[in-house]
């Protein structure tokens, strides 16, 4: 038995900047791979995340409504979990696809989209965080010569 689902996928902005069509295909291809019928899909927003996910502070939200048999859902979820270009996803049951949603999806189909560059303060924050994490990873513990000598003496 099929059910209408709504999925919100967080796409990596680097992938979206490189090729928007390829980024869209990540979601649409996964749906069709598992015998899903796509009702509507569109870019929802590009925004700052409330907390960093996979060291990313911003992501592109892509929303899709589709119909799929329930037994295909575990495989569908697994594909998203294994895909490194998908930061996070959410699948929820939907009663129906609203007319407004279909209209917005149809409007977006004919337009080209490029992700805006992240603001300067955002980019700075990423580098600082990464720098701090890198520093914490690379701490070398130097064993004092005296301690080494003591150990060897025992």
């Amino acid at each position: 038995m099929t059910q209408i689902y709504e999925t919100l996928v967080l796409l990596d902005n680097d992938v979206v900047r490189a090729d928007w069509k390829k980024a869209k295909a990540i979601v649409t291809d996964t749906i069709t791979k598992y015998d899903g019928t796509l009702h509507s899909c569109r870019r929802w927003d590009e925004k700052r995340l409330a907390y960093p996910i996979n060291r990313k502070n911003r992501a592109t939200y892509y929303i899709a409504y589709f119909e799929m048999p329930g037994d295909k859902m575990p495989g569908f979820r697994r594909d998203f979990e294994l895909n490194e270009r998908v930061l996070r996803y959410l699948v929820v049951c939907a009663d129906e696809v609203s007319e407004e949603e279909k209209k917005l999806a149809a409007e977006e189909d004919g337009t080209e989209y490029t992700v805006p560059e992240p603001p300067e303060d955002d980019a700075l924050e990423i580098t600082e965080e990464e720098a701090a994490e890198d520093l914490s990873d690379d701490i070398d513990v130097e064993v004092p010569a005296e301690a080494g000598a003591l150990d060897s003496g025992r």
């Binding site: 919100l8 409330a50 907390y51 996910i53 939200y61 996070r88 959410l90």
Partner: peptide
């Protein structure tokens, strides 16, 4: 809780 999961709201 759904909004928190997808990074729209903070934990």
């Amino acid at each position: 809780k759904r909004a928190r999961h997808v990074g729209l709201l903070p934990f």
